[in-house]
């Protein structure tokens, strides 16, 4: 792990421990300056990112996490069959404003189907979903147009909300920057790498300022830095009062979420 990786991991730890945004940036900048001027291996100078973040938290304290707000998404009794196979059985989830929920489970257990039902793209055989406010959805793949530029995607999505072209472009580029991507000089979507294309996908889903954000494994193809940026952005959106549901199979990120819905069938050890 080089100094940049260490700093990234350190920043992620601070966010995870709810050190306020400005304070976290300041502490990371100080550590970076110290490493640049003094040199040396960050592991020898500061120790592990986790240990150093814990020490920082102990000395400066943490920003209080925002209290969860009113219910934004309430899915109850969701059952879905494909032919004779029951994919989802009586799945329920309630997410409030200012919360991140993770939907986990084995391959084929219906995570994406559950999310598509919550988005209203697929009908369940039983159950209901109530959404309060505007809904945003980021599919696992697809959802972009091969022969359009990123800016044109922003304009297209923005027009749906009646947003002027210039404003939509600006908002899209700003959201892309949060993920460490400069969308201004980008090429056609079909020429983007898998990870960058997924950033476009994600940016489109946040562009309309949704109150409920549904993300289906949004990090596919992301490198380590982009992955950290994604969780930073999700944390920021949560702190702004959004309700977020993320389908994920990366268990090491679960400690950054507020609740977990495990859709693995009970006989396979699931908790749903």
């Amino acid at each position: 792990m080089n100094a940049d990786d260490w700093l990234r991991a350190f920043a992620a730890e601070l966010y995870q421990r709810r050190v306020g945004g400005d304070t976290a940036r300041h502490v990371v900048a100080e550590a970076a300056t110290h490493l640049r001027e003094g040199g040396g291996d960050p592991w020898l100078v500061f120790g592990s990112p986790q240990a150093y973040a814990a020490a920082i938290v102990e000395s400066i304290g943490t920003a209080p996490g925002p209290r969860p707000g009113p219910v934004r998404l309430h899915a109850r009794g969701i059952t879905k069959r494909y032919g004779r196979q029951v994919v989802l059985r009586d799945a329920s989830l309630t997410v409030r404003a200012g919360q991140i929920a993770a939907v986990v489970g084995a391959n084929g257990c219906g995570k994406s189907t559950f999310l598509r039902i919550c988005a209203g793209l697929v009908s369940p055989d039983a159950g209901e979903v109530t959404v309060s406010g505007r809904l945003g959805y980021c599919p696992q793949q697809g959802g972009t147009a091969d022969f359009l530029l990123p800016d044109e995607h922003f304009v297209l999505v923005g027009a749906g909300q009646g947003v002027a072209r210039g404003l939509a472009r600006q908002a899209g580029r700003a959201a892309a920057r949060q993920l460490g991507w400069d969308a201004e000089n980008a090429v056609l979507a079909r020429h983007l790498s898998g990870g960058t294309r997924q950033k476009l996908n994600l940016t489109m889903s946040t562009l309309a300022q949704p109150d409920v954000l549904l993300l289906d494994e949004p990090y596919q193809g992301f490198d380590q830095g982009s992955y950290v940026n994604l969780w930073d952005q999700l944390t920021r959106l949560r702190d702004e009062g959004r309700a977020i549901v993320v389908v994920t199979h990366l268990l090491n990120q679960l400690d950054r979420v507020d609740m977990v819905l495990d859709l693995t069938p009970a006989h396979q050890g699931g908790r749903s």
């Binding site: 988005a119 793209l121 959805y137 959802g143 147009a145 091969d146 999505v157 909300q161 309309a208």
Partner: peptide
């Protein structure tokens, strides 16, 4: 055919 995947999310975006 190319717009098949895009249209549901445009619907959610207000179209």
């Amino acid at each position: 055919s190319a717009a098949r995947e895009l249209e549901p999310r445009l619907r959610l975006a207000g179209y």
